[in-house]
Amino acid sequence: MANFVGGICTSHNGALMHGWDKQLRDDPIWTPLFEGYDPVRKWIKDKKVDVLFFVFNDHISNFFFDCYPTFAIGIANEYEHADEGSGPRDLAIPYGDVPFSRYMADYLIRHEFDLTVCQEMKLDHGMMGPAPFMLDQPWPVKFVPFCVNVIQHPIPSVKRCWKLGQSVRKAIEEYPEDINVAIVGTGGLSHELQGTEFGRIELDWDNEFMDKFEYDPVSMLDWDVKEFMDRGGAESAETVMWFAMRGAMTKKVKRIHRNLYRGMLTGMGILVFEDDE
């Protein structure tokens, strides 16, 4: 049977692409952020993770508004890197675990999640922003990319994402193969990329959120997405995706790692949790 090893949450943004592609670890602005990901890389290695179930959003790189899916899962053997304006990035090819991906799609659709199933997907910074910070290349894991619409409202609620995480967890535990799987929730934290308050960051809220998220996530399950947008800026709506990770975990968690960094435009959080029950 598959083994659920734990969950990771991480912000994602375009800056991560820049920092990685230019290899800016030694730039004092970037060093703390690179170091913030080192324990994640170690944890993934120590836990011998085989597959990452990666919850993220596309930023009009793979999908356009002609057809923008609310939930979409990749079931491909191999994925391409998106061209976000500077050409496709020079990163290792991300491979999928086809039987596991199909199984996950099948399970989730049978359990009330009506997914769009994708045989091709170009992965953008929603996933490939943080991925190279967390993993060596060639990638030591296979990926299941799972896209959530968080940019064209209405978007899935906090509770919906939480329930998604619960179902993902159950599905993993019922998978007959002996593989180690972790879930990744991405997005946020505070940022606002448009309007007269462009660049708004709420680091105190981010910090408070990370506390609540760890100790009392249930208190936020009935929050409207707007609550997050008011507290952490319009684009922090994507924080709902963190709840997919949290829903997959036990109520009480063991924190392996926590990091918060203030980038130029984004409050950037990192968490690694294991079950503690």
Partner: peptide, 10 residues
């Protein structure tokens, strides 16, 4: 006004 902090906020 928005220079990164140069350290992690932990």
């Amino acid at each position: 006004r928005n220079v990164p902090l140069l350290k992690n906020y932990n």
